[in-house]
Amino acid sequence: MSSYVIRSVRAGEWAAAKELRLSALRDPVAHLAFLETYEEAAARPDSFWKERTAGGAEGALGTQQIIAEGPDGHWVGTLTVLLEEPGTTDWAGLPVELRQGHVVGVFVRPEERGSGLTEVLFDAGLEWAWGREAERVRLIVHEENGRAQRFYRRVGFVPSGRTVPLPMAPGENELEFVLERGRD
């Protein structure tokens, strides 16, 4: 792990953020892990990627994109944490009841999987959320994405019992997993 740098993305790094996202969307299980397709993301203008990267960059208040940079400077993994406030609604229109982190966009390049890198990214994401007084951290995972569910359980997340229907895929559901503060 010492050969990797784990850090927040910087606003000007939109091209690298775009490349890593497009790589994630080419993954064989991308349809179970991400709410957009490669074609949709690839068609977005550079202005979208600049704005998206700046919104999750170092120093941003409500969102943080954390990346793993390999020894050669190439990005090999990422996750993003959104800070959700009570009294608002989430991406699915469901009410948010607690100040919470919401982990999204988890991806580690296939050649880096099994190295412990995903755990290190999660540690950094949790540290960011806890540092902003989140009462818990949650994530949503497709009901058929067993690989991701096994990992999330291994790092301490547990199913909350909440099921989120996918509007773009009738009949398919996502499951909410949570990690309460003090249990990581």
Rank of each mutant, 00 (worst) to 15 (best):
M1E: 04
S2N: 10
S3N: 09
Y4C: 02
Y4W: 13
I6L: 09
R7V: 09
R7P: 01
R10A: 03
A11L: 04
W14E: 02
A15P: 00
K18P: 00
L20R: 06
L22F: 06
R26A: 04
D27N: 06
D27F: 03
D27H: 08
P28I: 11
F34P: 00
F34W: 04
E36H: 09
E36A: 07
T37L: 00
T37A: 02
Y38K: 01
A42R: 11
D46Y: 11
D46P: 02
S47V: 15
W49D: 03
K50S: 05
K50Q: 14
E51K: 09
A54F: 04
A57E: 03
E58V: 13
G59L: 10
G62N: 09
T63V: 13
T63M: 02
Q64T: 08
Q65F: 03
Q65H: 02
Q65A: 06
I66A: 00
I66D: 03
I66L: 08
A68F: 14
E69H: 10
G70K: 09
G70P: 00
H74L: 10
G77W: 15
T78V: 12
L82E: 06
L83G: 03
L83P: 02
E84V: 10
E84N: 09
E84Y: 13
E85A: 05
E85G: 02
P86C: 06
P86E: 11
D90I: 08
D90M: 11
D90S: 06
A92F: 13
A92D: 07
G93H: 10
G93A: 14
P95I: 14
P95D: 04
V96P: 00
E97W: 11
L98V: 14
G101N: 08
G105M: 15
R109M: 07
R109Y: 03
P110H: 07
L117Y: 07
V120I: 13
F122H: 06
D123C: 06
L126D: 01
W128E: 03
W128R: 05
G131T: 09
R132S: 08
R132A: 03
R132P: 01
R132V: 07
R132K: 15
E133M: 03
E133G: 01
A134P: 01
R136L: 12
V141Y: 00
E144D: 11
E144H: 05
E144I: 06
N145V: 13
R147V: 07
R147W: 04
A148T: 06
A148F: 03
Q149S: 07
Y152H: 04
R153D: 01
R154N: 05
V155R: 05
V158H: 11
P159R: 13
P159Q: 10
T163H: 14
T163Y: 15
T163A: 11
P165S: 08
P165W: 12
L166Q: 02
P167Q: 11
M168E: 10
A169V: 14
A169R: 15
E172S: 04
E172F: 05
L175A: 01
L175R: 12
E176L: 12
F177D: 06
F177S: 02
F177K: 06
L179N: 04
L179Y: 07
E180Q: 12
G182V: 15
G182K: 15
R183E: 14
